[in-house]
């Protein structure tokens, strides 16, 4: 089945060139020039991954991300015109999985999309079942429950949690997590890890402000307390 990439971008030039490039990669490209258009595509049928420009006329990119997250675990890559830390972090906090900055290199973008699409598929070889206090993780089914209630995690959050769970009790540095979950080397942005850890905590911690399960080890990284 051909993967369907939703490109939410108001600049017609970028949109068309992206369509050419991504179609060249064997994907089907759904073009949306506004947030409203994007919602139409999402209503209409299957989308495998979304590329969202934050600076959109009308509905802002942030609202598109919020809306997508409200509906699904669809992987999202944000396109930002500025490296403005604020924009990137805000987008990630809303649930975006990754980001690229304009002017980006299309090969870099394709690599990001591929990594995310891979992540979106069910992981094949994982232990059958993890249990930490109230939290139950079933990797094969891709499900997590907190005190018996199902928790909806994005694929990236799920991968992150599984990575921490497999190495429960061990400290994993941001760099290690970037490499194992996102497929980045050392040159990646560690804010990706921090933002996703924060989101993950709001979902699996009883008191996210005082995490008991996923703890920060200052100066080193993160650790899942068994």
């Amino acid at each position: 089945m051909v993967d369907r990439v939703l490109v939410v971008e108001d600049d017609p030039g970028i949109r068309s060139s992206l369509r050419l490039a991504l179609e060249g990669e064997g994907w089907e490209v759904l073009e949306a020039e506004s947030g409203e258009d994007a919602f139409v595509w999402l209503d209409r049928g299957r989308v495998d991954i979304a590329l969202v420009d934050l600076m959109l006329p009308g509905v802002h990119g942030f609202d598109v991300i919020r809306e997508i997250r409200h509906r699904s675990r669809l992987p999202i890559v944000i396109v930002t015109a500025r490296t403005d830390t604020h924009d990137v972090v805000a987008g990630l906090e809303l649930g975006a999985d990754d980001y690229v900055t304009k002017p980006f290199e299309v090969r870099e973008l394709v690599a990001r999309l591929r990594a995310l699409l891979r992540r979106a598929r069910p992981t094949e070889s994982s232990p059958a079942h993890f249990s930490f206090g109230d939290v139950e993780i079933v990797p094969a089914a891709g499900t997590v429950t907190l005190a018996g209630e199902a928790v909806l995690l994005t694929r990236t959050e799920f991968r992150l949690l599984c990575e921490l769970a497999v190495h429960a009790g061990q400290i994993l540095s941001r760099e290690q997590l970037l490499e194992r979950v996102w497929g980045y080397d050392y040159l990646g942005d560690t804010r990706l890890v921090d933002a996703h850890i924060r989101r993950l905590r709001t979902k699996v911690e009883t008191d996210p402000a005082h995490p008991k399960l996923i703890v920060t080890v200052r100066g080193f990284g993160y650790k899942l307390e068994p």
Partner: peptide, 20 residues
Amino acid sequence: SHELRSPLTTLATAADVLAG
């Protein structure tokens, strides 16, 4: 520089398609 971002992204992406 900001104004040049978008056209340049288009150019770079199109150039990459051409290279392919």
